[in-house]
Amino acid sequence: MIYKLQFADLLPYWDVLVRGLAFTILLTLASTLSGVAVGTLGASARTFGPQWLSRLVGAYVELIRNTPFLVQLFFVYFGLPAAGLKLTETQAAFIAMTINLGAYSTEIIRAGIEATPKGVIEAGVSLAMTRLQVLRHVVLKPAFEKVWPALASQIIIVMLGSSVVSQISAEDLTYAANFIQSRNFRAFESYFVVALAYLMLAILARAILRALGSRLFPKA
């Protein structure tokens, strides 16, 4: 028996798809902003902070980088409420993604910071810049410029990884696919279309991040 693919059966559910798409985009945007913020703080603490703080951040980075995102998500969604912190699906998804991206971007940004020559920092200090000014203008800006491509691909990896938030019934793009196939029984078609949507998102995100990169760090 040859099966004929029936993509038309997806059409009545277009609004579900659009809502899922919007959720995935917003979730990625929000957790990218907070994740990179965590990463910036983490990388600064790791390089310039006291030893105990540096060690603590190091442990956080290794713990997150060596466990699956799915388990981190389950821990936040199922584990934390047992410890007294109640979270909605969306909040849990956002927190788990922030923690995840935070760890990876700490490591990425740290690599950029460590490539800053010591003399440049001393030059900043000798120009009577405050510590914060040195950190912001002398250390972080060139560091971000150096690691921008790595950061961009990590953001895209996190976006694709976000497909598992459907497992705690956060209503993202994958959730839409699960929902549709449970109604019309066109499982392959649903997942195929949603996979293509993710592919488009990834390609679009890559283009946007590249454009943003050349905007933020114009080649002199």
Binding site: Y3, L160, S163, A177, Y191, Y198, L199
Partner: peptide
């Protein structure tokens, strides 16, 4: 460019289409 989870779903349901 696509989530690993989607790939698993597609394989799981895609192969079944061939009976």
């Amino acid at each position: 460019g696509t989530p690993l989870l989607m790939q698993m779903f597609m394989l799981f349901f895609g192969v079944a289409l061939f009976g």
